[in-house]
């Protein structure tokens, strides 16, 4: 699989990582190299094979649906880069 600059720009946008135009070309080369190497998986016949959903055989536990933690905004906000009262502050999102 060979990725072009436009595809890399689109992925970077999806991943919310700013990539300068000047780096798109070399990044496309690197990512294409990795994807081409990964494509050896196409040699494996996987028809009818269930995809793995759990690394070890286990049934996920159920628990009672009740609040077990929380109610401590100071702890939640302790590492905030910017805050007001008990809110995180971000640039204006609604005009």
């Amino acid at each position: 699989m060979s990725l072009d600059k436009a595809t890399v720009a689109r992925i970077a946008k999806l991943a919310r990582i700013a990539v300068p135009e000047s780096e798109l070309e070399s990044l496309a080369g690197e990512l294409s190299g990795i994807l081409t190497w990964i494509e050896q998986l196409n040699e494996v016949n996987t028809s009818g094979v269930e995809p793995m959903t759990s690394a070890v055989a286990m049934t996920l536990r159920m628990r009672e649906d009740r609040v077990t933690d929380g109610g401590d905004p100071e702890k939640v906000l302790a590492n905030a880069p910017e805050r007001t009262d008990t809110f995180f502050v971000v640039p204006k999102v609604v005009e």
Binding site: I38, L41, N42, V44, T46, V49, E50, P51, M52, T53
Partner: peptide
Amino acid sequence: YYLKAQQVRTLIA
């Protein structure tokens, strides 16, 4: 990609 890889994972296990 992802589905294929998880199928291969089943085969490895």
